[in-house]
Computed example of a mutant assay.
Amino acid sequence: MHAKCSSVFPSANDAVRPEPGWSPNTLKTTFVVTVDVESRSKGDPAQDVLGVIPGYQGNFGIGRIMDLMEAHQARATFFVNVYESAKHGDEAMSRAARMIHERGHDLELHTHPRPMFPHYGMSQAPLDEQVAILEKGISLLEAWTSKRVVAHRSGAFAANTDTLRAAESVGLRADCSLSPGSRVEVPLVEELGATNAAQRVDGVWEIPMTCFDQIRVGAWHSRRILDIEGCSLAEIKRVTRDAIRQGLPTVCILMHSFSFSRQGTPNRRAIRRLSALLGWLRRQDDIEIGTIEQVCRGLDAMPPPVGAARIPRTGFWLTWCRAVGAWNEGGKNFVVAAAGLGGIALVALAVATAGYRLIHP
């Protein structure tokens, strides 16, 4: 059985041949803040989900994320990993699900099935077991909140086309596991290809994480996804404007319920970045902040999809600026920042040497 897929809207490199009734000037791109609600592997949902950091006042979990979204008259999509309730008990996760739903945000399903099923990721399970995993998660969220979810994201993006078949069989409308810029193996990327465009695969919309190439040299590229912790505001803006120019229906950025905490302390840089991003988005006339559930309704109402989408490139300068700003947050950032400074020093030395030789032949 082969999945039938097609991407939404033409590439900016293609000649503009819109379908009848479609105009790039009448449809806005929807920016979706997606939040994976889960505990770290050795974490505690009280801190990683509900945002209680010992020794600090305030909330640094899903409550704080919702506060920021609501301050900008916006809502986020929260993919909740219900399966960890088998490990930690269901009090924290059920409370989180109810908070999300009662505050009017988009509650959806996140699958890290290991605590309840013998599989780390969805793609490791055969189709019938993937169906059982989804049915269990859907039923728990419905029992906790009375909401029947419409979308799913695989934990660690470990999905394949069987995952989409399973999603269709349990009545889901969308999957959000395609992540071409992840640093983990994503079977769905091998099966569907790397793209930022939504695709209709059999009866399910595949709405991808938005990705970009930091640096591209020939066939080689350094690719990553939009991530509130790992990307600079300048990079997010650049990729978003490119998606708008292409007429893509969605831009999706990744967060976690613990994005506002780092090693037991508040991650205030991520808090400021999300706030600044939401403020910038609200000032754009050609984009709106929405949810996956809203996107599904919009995609269903669109004309037949055509064309493909290219993956944008941000370039060395933005990559280096981001690394400099976060030089103490990981070895790669330090190496990139140092390499850039070394390159600048070499260029300066070469220019100075050439100038000296001109003056003193």
Rank of each mutant, 00 (worst) to 15 (best):
K4E: 12
C5M: 13
P10D: 11
T29N: 07
T29V: 10
T30D: 12
V35R: 05
D36Q: 07
V37M: 10
D44R: 11
A46M: 11
L50P: 04
G51P: 08
G55F: 06
F60L: 01
G61Y: 02
G61D: 03
I62H: 06
I65K: 00
M69C: 15
H72L: 02
F79G: 04
E84W: 03
E84I: 02
A92K: 07
A92Y: 13
R98Y: 08
R103H: 09
L109Q: 09
P115R: 08
F117W: 11
H119Q: 05
Q124Y: 09
I133G: 01
I133A: 01
K136F: 14
L140E: 13
L141G: 04
V149Y: 04
V149H: 05
V149K: 05
A151M: 08
H152N: 13
A159Y: 03
D162I: 04
R165W: 06
A166V: 10
V170C: 06
S179M: 12
P187V: 04
L192G: 01
A197M: 06
A198D: 08
A198L: 10
V201D: 02
G203F: 08
D213T: 05
I225E: 10
L226C: 06
I228F: 03
K237D: 06
K237A: 07
L248K: 01
I253W: 00
S261F: 00
R262P: 00
T265L: 04
N267W: 00
R268K: 14
L277V: 10
L278W: 09
L278T: 07
G279V: 08
L281I: 07
R283P: 00
M302G: 03
V306G: 03
G315C: 04
F316T: 04
W317C: 10
C321H: 05
R322N: 15
A323Q: 01
G325V: 07
A326V: 09
W327N: 00
E329D: 15
K332E: 12
A345F: 02
A348L: 13
A352Q: 11
A352V: 09
A354W: 13
P361A: 11
P361Y: 02
